[in-house]
Design a protein around this nucleic acid. Structure first.
Lengths: 128, 128, 128, 128
DNA sequence: GTGGTCTAGACCACT
DNA sequence: GTGGTCTAGACCACG
């Protein structure tokens, strides 16, 4: 799993990390049941603090993507443990709505956005 | 322009406000060349801090959506002043990519996301 | 709100703190809508680290007891926002079951435990 | 004695195990004077680490529930060896107090908690 | 060796 | 002035 974080982004490091891991799960690069690198390992390989990685893992656990076993490691959950609830759907739609509003303002029509979505999904072509 | 902000939310107030105004521009509810409410007016009607409104307006100005005329008000720019640059496109795509990754993990397929995009665009049916 | 923490307990400080705050809410010592002391204030008055208080507040927020408003403070929610769900009930029952098992082993009968419960509720006699 | 442990749980495995054994003593499923399964046996049948079982047994011994005979096994003590001391009573009351505080916050009244206690004791209907 | 807790101190975002 | 983020480093609980 290759992860690059932007140190000077307005998006918090732990959030970027979370997004990258979700991305890796989506592509199938990280399989269900697989163990993620330990907090120490990942923090040192990314040259960031241990607690930052910890926070990312903790949040992923709250959102259902992983299970943290104390003293043993962090495991990727099976797909059914984080299938979208109605609330998740609502949140995703709100994000899309905000993006589309900006896109429309900037003269991008629906087709262009849909193309982007398709392109994004194609990128996630993993066999998961 | 009816604006509702969520005081508790992981999204900063100024950004929520920014998003709402962009949304209003997208629907045509706020026309090009039109004047936005003054900082004082808006902050008091939303019961939020004056600085928060100010920050939202400043950001909108940086992104090209409005022009701030000192002491005279804030005007919505014409469409051509904030048409998407390549960089804007790239940023939008990155956002979509992150959303699609989460969506795929949560077992939503491309069609569902595309439906959401269409629905979002339909909501923005204004004549701008 | 008088809070005493045991530094050498096997129960984490942030957990003790959480329990004390819930207790204060239960007695009505801290009213709904009221603002809790700031992270810095409380950490310094308890002579513990800021992050420890922060963790307690964050968990209370996740459990629905308080709302954290960035830049403004931490507010106690209204009662209906943390009424027991079925899952909460189940968890509470499991805790009681474990306690009763130990109590029975130690030759305490049901009446003694029930007396303790009544006594506990009497202590929480606040008008909330 | 059927024991199910939750690998992911905020409660340590050794404590879950301890609680289950106390529960089995309370129901009479495990009789006084009886021998508990060996550390190796139990650890392998539960698929957990040998040290974890060891820790649970050691704790039970400290609390007076069992006697560990080196090289010969672990025996359940007679009831009088772990009858509640004043200190035990105090600890149990503190736990109940914390639970009741949360319960009251979550709008459960004393009767509901007492019902749970009665239900818990009924479950422990063994003849010990 | 794993994650959890706690401390200490810095800087930032937000109101 | 509020909470949020990040770093650094120590020690503990757990398996």
């Amino acid at each position: 799993m290759i992860i690059k974080l932007l140190l000077d982004s307005d998006i918090p490091l732990y959030q970027q990390l979370k997004d990258k891991i979700v991305y890796a799960i989506a592509t199938g690069e990280v399989k269900q049941g697989e163990q993620l690198p330990s907090v120490r390992q990942l923090s040192s390989s990314l040259s960031i603090n241990l607690h930052t990685v910890n926070k990312a893992y903790t949040q992923l656990s709250v959102e259902g993507f992983v299970t943290i076993l104390k003293g043993r490691g962090v495991l990727v959950n099976t797909k059914d443990m984080y299938a979208a609830s109605d609330n998740d759907r609502k949140k995703i739609f709100e994000q899309i709505q905000t993006i589309c509003a900006e896109a429309k303002c900037r003269s991008l029509d629906a087709d262009e956005i849909i193309n982007m979505c398709n392109k994004a999904y194609t990128t996630l072509k993993g066999d998961n």
